[in-house]
Design a protein around this nucleic acid. Sequence first.
DNA 1: CATGAATGAGCTTTCATTCAT
DNA 2: GATGAATGAAAGCTCATTCAT
Lengths: 233, 233, 233, 233
Amino acid sequence: MSTSCSISEIAATVPAKRERRKDARPGELLAAALELFVEKGFAATRAEEVAKRAGVSKGTLFLYFSSKEELFKAVVRENISGKFDAWNAEFDTFEGSSAELLRYSIHAWWERIGNTKAAGITKLMMSEAGNFPELAAFYQHEVIQPGNDLLRRVLQRGVDRGEFRPMDLQYGVYTVLAPMLFLATWKHSLGLCSGTDNIIDPEQYIAVQVETLLNGLNRRADAALTPQGLSTP
Amino acid sequence: MSTSCSISEIAATVPAKRERRKDARPGELLAAALELFVEKGFAATRAEEVAKRAGVSKGTLFLYFSSKEELFKAVVRENISGKFDAWNAEFDTFEGSSAELLRYSIHAWWERIGNTKAAGITKLMMSEAGNFPELAAFYQHEVIQPGNDLLRRVLQRGVDRGEFRPMDLQYGVYTVLAPMLFLATWKHSLGLCSGTDNIIDPEQYIAVQVETLLNGLNRRADAALTPQGLSTP
Amino acid sequence: MSTSCSISEIAATVPAKRERRKDARPGELLAAALELFVEKGFAATRAEEVAKRAGVSKGTLFLYFSSKEELFKAVVRENISGKFDAWNAEFDTFEGSSAELLRYSIHAWWERIGNTKAAGITKLMMSEAGNFPELAAFYQHEVIQPGNDLLRRVLQRGVDRGEFRPMDLQYGVYTVLAPMLFLATWKHSLGLCSGTDNIIDPEQYIAVQVETLLNGLNRRADAALTPQGLSTP
Amino acid sequence: MSTSCSISEIAATVPAKRERRKDARPGELLAAALELFVEKGFAATRAEEVAKRAGVSKGTLFLYFSSKEELFKAVVRENISGKFDAWNAEFDTFEGSSAELLRYSIHAWWERIGNTKAAGITKLMMSEAGNFPELAAFYQHEVIQPGNDLLRRVLQRGVDRGEFRPMDLQYGVYTVLAPMLFLATWKHSLGLCSGTDNIIDPEQYIAVQVETLLNGLNRRADAALTPQGLSTP
DNA sequence: CATGAATGAGCTTTCATTCAT
DNA sequence: GATGAATGAAAGCTCATTCAT
């Protein structure tokens, strides 16, 4: 950019402070809301505090989000459901083995969700779903279902290609989900109160779970992981 | 009892109505409180509703429990911490192999906690610990710590007897805990919203986890379950 | 009493414990109530605590006094209004000078009321009269008015006998009352919070006030105490 | 102001309605609170009623004062403790005799406190100090102590200048305080219930007390007012 | 657009009084 | 008579949401 730009040029190029902030508002609010929802839960988070942390007034929050529930939904969309499209695309173009795909999927979850504040949303939904049915339905529809479907497709791919043994897919999904969601939940709750000596190392924890999982899913494993739900007749 | 009991016998046996209710009150209140805490969480449970469900008035609740927090603590003692003594005793007199002891412990947890409303308490603490520090400290002290200690002793027993491989005990404890707590959490939260076709069968789920676990813990397993934290140097 | 009294004699003479206690009940309750009313005020005194301090149950209190207000009235009658008859009698038979009568009256008040817990009732009425109109009316009728009348008669006697100068009697009454009631009030309120070095010595305080008063009332005093209200026309 | 003021002038002069109310709120609330505290006492005054009398809702009150106790403290600061600075300044620059200073002090108290609603605060503290220890401590620190100190300095000035006889200062302070506080207390309590014929005229009452006091304090008085505490050895 | 003053339903806890035993 | 379990109105305080400015 030339050094001799006129005032009007500046005005055109660098948006006026107010305008720039205006565009940034929703993002700042979403970031503040994510933090606070994760810290305190949905019910215990006060709208005013979200606003304050985003550097705006209480009224402004309701200018962008018509209610606390809508704010929460926006947080979920921004941080979780928005990512499913990319994941689906990655799945469609993935070229390695299904075991690699599963490993990749889990690590992607960890990096993009589990290891970020977004994991707190999962914990939060687990605890408050009961009190906010509309939120629960929304989450079920926007997150649980797509996540389920994605994992299903991963497993189905393995089965179709003869890499995984035939299985009850739903059971398989939960078997993958369980250790991940436990990790996300624990990290954001009682894990915080535990002593310093008994801290989970998530990377190792995940590594173990993945290998155990694959050991159970792989076609020829004399696997320990063989309940009726997963085994072939 | 003989069919020819005199009136005085009846009087002795069937307590006056008021008397009977008085004795039953705390139990009725604890039962109602357990249900509601599990359904709605601590903060969202209203004292008045607990009272109503127990069939008494608001004031009566505070006759027996000096505050909502004390009520909650009583619920925890009644349903969880009260059971550790029995478990410790069972542990001390258990005569089978350590694998059997672990299996037994986990199934006992499932039957006495995991498969009852008490499991909801675990979920609840996971979500609300942050907002009620005193409750969190209480739970840590009354439940987490004793549970940890008990599991540690089980694992230590196996290691001492040469049945389990040497391991980082704390990591081992979490490895046992994870699938159980996930189960308890899921059942009482998003599990409720899931469709009817993708229901977890807890018995099978547990069976799988236990065997996987033992596979990982056993001395000679070429175990998949071998992170640094658990392996021998 | 003879040492060989039969059991039935005992029963007749020494009332059975239950019966004796029954007769003593109201007195024990009144004593407990006086203490607590003085300590905490009327509104802040809980019926249950009165009962407990009297060693009976809450229900029993309401057996003897139909409400907290009635209890309070009984306390007032027992400790204050009940004494006016004796005072009136003493006044009627008093043979000394009117100055001596006034001195005697004030010291009698101090010994029988001011220096006892009953003084707390005065303080209490000063504070809570506004909130309990019925109590205020009762107190006005049972205590203020008779006290006023009594003092009036004392002053009138002095005037009639030419010992005191002619005066506005009502103003004279207040002039006598003021330092006494201040003392009673202070002792039971902020006097309690003051440091140890600035304690009022009631005897001295009273002595000063009485002499000042008489100085002002006496016929020939070139008294400082000469407002219009008290002076002769 | 000219009669031809433009619209913008009006806008500048008459603040927006909302704005004006906002600035006025604390004052309106303090005024309403003072009235009600004086009428009913601290405990019996309901926050909602204060709000209603100030023309706002319950919530608004707590927007300005974080609790009922803080509201009360603010009332005390506004109406009493806030005046000590001015009094101390007046004392420092006073040029007349100490007798005049004392007269002036007492009349100033009467005009600025005793004859206003603020006098009710004194009565209120006398009655409720025991039930609200934190308030009592606050009042002791913010009012009693400074008041004591101020009076002490007045008396000390008289003694130092040889105008007053040597005396026990603390006793002297109480001797000045007593009739004033009685007046304040009586006016706001039983004085309200008394018949119309026996009303105290405060001005006269004060005049008498002041002269009696000076009579007792003055160096050469053959004073009636001579207890040990006040007399010279 | 942005603000923040205002609202009022809602929640925990207290306590005088009743009444079945 | 005596008991104490039960009641329920009332009071302090919070917070999502609105709306005048």
